[in-house]
Design a protein around this nucleic acid. Structure first.
Lengths: 149, 149
DNA sequence: AAAGTATTGAAACAAAATTTCAATAAGGTA
DNA sequence: TACCTTATTGAAATTTTGTTTCAATACTTT
């Protein structure tokens, strides 16, 4: 069950301890499950996955844990769609942007150095401290272009 | 009451007609009020502004009109905060990005040519049709950096 | 082992957004 | 202009998301 130092587990535990909070099994189980999902997810999906694995963790705990994971930089809000937020884990991933098809709802990731440059330069120019960035393109994918779009 | 062709009013009316819908006074009043707000807004704020001007337009109508305005490119979802969406009108504005301070909640706009380049190149490379883009930096502004952040 | 306190699950609650439905009004036609 | 068809409206009900409450539990320290 041990993870090497520098893993998301370590980071989360250190963060929790540093805040004077308690590192509980529920919090770890939620974290582990999130890092098992190699895609975007929402609260409901995460809840059901935990349930299907026999964990009886409440949605309240998920809602309470997510802000902590976001605060320590392991998880990110990606986009708000269908009336609720969608998340992804980001530790160990290069920063990336998203394309979302408004028709088929598919989400594609892509990287571009320039986006980080823009953010870095803005931060320098205005003396702000960057916590995270988000770049999204919304439109119609090549498949959907001809159709209903 | 007439606006020159190419105005947001014209665009909206043409869009509505083209969809076979009806161009109602409620829809126009909502559109006009949105373009009077030179800042981000949410549904509640828009509703109260209309009310204060004596318009008795329901929130349901606002919720029904916003997707139409977004679909025809006059309005954009900017960010989701405090449990609800925030919008801005975009017609006549240059594309811009946002910095949001996680501490004081202030939102600053800025422009950077490179963001549109990135989007344009992605669209060309993957054959997608861009409807809109969104670039956000979240962090702590120069004032809040030292403090609670 | 005992005390103190953060966390949990369940349920109550609050808020955002959508849907329902009867009344109204837009827009076309005679 | 009067009439007809049907989309739209406001109000209320409903659904869904997310937060809060609270008693029970479990972590941590002494």
């Amino acid at each position: 069950m041990e993870k090497p130092p520098g893993s998301e587990i370590e980071i989360f535990r250190d963060f929790i301890k540093k805040k004077g909070l308690r590192y509980t099994s529920e919090r770890e189980i939620i974290l582990r499950e999130i890092f098992n999902i190699h895609d975007h997810f929402d609260v409901d999906e995460l809840y059901l996955r935990l349930r299907n694995k026999g964990h009886r963790i409440s949605k309240a705990s998920i809602y309470r844990t997510l802000p902590l994971l976001i605060e320590c930089g392991l998880v990110q809000e990606v986009y708000h769609e269908d009336g609720h937020m969608h998340y992804e884990h980001i530790y160990g991933h290069e920063p990336h942007a998203h394309f979302r098809c408004l028709s088929c709802r598919r989400v594609e990731e892509f990287k571009d150095q320039r986006l980080e440059e823009v953010a870095r330069e803005y931060a320098e120019k205005y003396g702000v401290e960057i916590k995270m960035t988000r770049f999204e393109i919304l439109g119609y994918c090549s498949t959907c272009r001809g159709g209903e779009g």
